[in-house]
Design a protein around this nucleic acid. Structure first.
Lengths: 247, 247
DNA sequence: CAAAACTGCGATCAGTGTTCGCTATATACG
DNA sequence: CGTATATAGCGAACACTGATCGCAGTTTTG
């Protein structure tokens, strides 16, 4: 279960433990291999398909053997999440404009969520950030170095920024899932919400449902993401720093 | 598991089914009672403590009997979530300023998340909104009626607004949980992050960790929530509408 | 009054994360 | 070199989960 221990002193985090100790036979697998197997399963069939048994079968071992690499299933998911954070690339030089640089990171994050939608189901609360998450923090903090924010304000801004990316990606993916099977969609939400609106108790809902455009063409989300993300960023950041792509 | 069916045509939603049919003996319980029992359990011990068996025991019945009221555990969680959305109150008149009115809703939402932190673990994706969620949408849409946004833009804005409230609440609650046991906190994250920063590979992380204030006094979050939320809202909304509390 | 439809539920199933104890194997140390 | 030590892989099992089936009792419908 990916629930909330919220206040529990389970042993040291997986990032604080060495992957392998000196003694004993050399392991036949690795954290990276196990995480990759889990990611493949989750990409194909969702996070629910990532069970100790299925992952073990995927790498050709017994379920109990996984616990030589991972203390719990949640740790396996932690490995998966951090491995996926490794898909960020920081090769571009950095423009000096916080909004521009963060927007670049946001685009990459958006792509990662689209590639691995199960990441939306991962609750990081209370887990230590893995090495790739730390690398992401480092580069996001670097983008904020020009601002006059204090250290803790920068850390907080990075958290809010990551959350905003997650939020936008989630909105997009849900819309995308909904639009996939239009027949089901019309039959479920519209067929459920329209009668409610027609009952007269919810005039504003009725008005909003009344003037819907035909259907969002998929290519139109990119500018929306950019514009909304830019606005949120300029809101989070202290004023006075106008990004260059603004008139 | 609260995982993603993401594309499944399970039967009609619980909101489309009548709570009780005419024939047969009258039920000894109700959806509301079951939801309340679940909420009590979740408030006390997290969403993971809400099992069919524990809820059944809480209302004094057998586990199998719950399936007369609910088709699946996820539906039970849906009931819980919607019942909690019922804690919004819409008695205040409405100022006519979108940002002011939405901020009022945001405060209530924030309070709800603080009262029921397990709500952060509930993934609504793909579920139909319950009556209380619909009521919330109605009032959020009402706040947006003055803006020049189209119907679908208003609906989307409500979704992003709700997500932003959730995001801020989550950030606050995580910080709050972290600050509760300072000893554990110092020993885990700081003791884990500081060596990384000291290694020299992450200069911006080191700089951000360097100038941390003593400790956030809890009463200081309120203005931060207001300020950041206001900024996000003014970013999401079309320009030109300056809320009255701004100079 | 009988047919139909529902409620409560004991028993049970399949699936889950996790643990225990075993054997085999590799390193560390004297 | 030899022995202690710590690990790797894992079969078997445990506790617990959500969910199903079918039966007996109860209420409404016609």
């Amino acid at each position: 279960m990916t629930e909330e221990p919220r206040t529990s002193d389970r042993g040291p985090s997986i990032w604080a433990r060495p992957e392998r100790s000196a003694r004993g036979p050399s392991p036949e697998h690795s954290r990276a291999k196990i995480a990759s197997a889990g990611i493949t399963l989750a990409d194909a069939s969702g996070l629910g398909a990532v069970t100790m048994r299925s992952v073990a079968a995927a790498i050709g071992t017994a379920p109990a053997s996984l616990y030589r690499y991972v203390a719990t299933r949640d740790e396996l998911v932690e490995l998966m999440a951090d491995q996926v954070y490794g898909e960020f690339s920081y090769h571009e030089p950095g423009s000096g404009h916080p909004v521009t640089d963060l927007l670049r990171l946001a685009h990459q994050g958006r792509a990662i969520y689209h590639r691995h939608p199960w990441l939306l189901d991962v609750r990081a609360a209370g887990n230590l950030p893995g090495p790739n998450a730390v690398a992401f923090m480092e580069h996001a903090l670097a983008a904020l170095s020009g601002t006059g924010l204090t250290g803790s304000a920068r850390l907080e801004t990075v958290g809010l920024f990551s959350g905003a990316v997650r939020l936008f990606a989630q909105t997009e993916i849900e819309q995308q899932d909904a639009g996939r099977d239009t027949a089901q969609w019309q039959g479920s939400l519209a067929g459920y919400l329209l009668p409610i609106a027609a009952a007269g108790q919810h005039p504003h809902l009725a008005a909003a449902l009344a003037d819907q455009p035909a259907l969002d063409d998929p290519g139109q989300h990119q500018p929306l993401f950019d514009r909304a993300m830019t606005r949120i960023l300029t809101g989070l950041l202290p004023p006075g720093r106008t990004p260059p792509e603004f008139s």
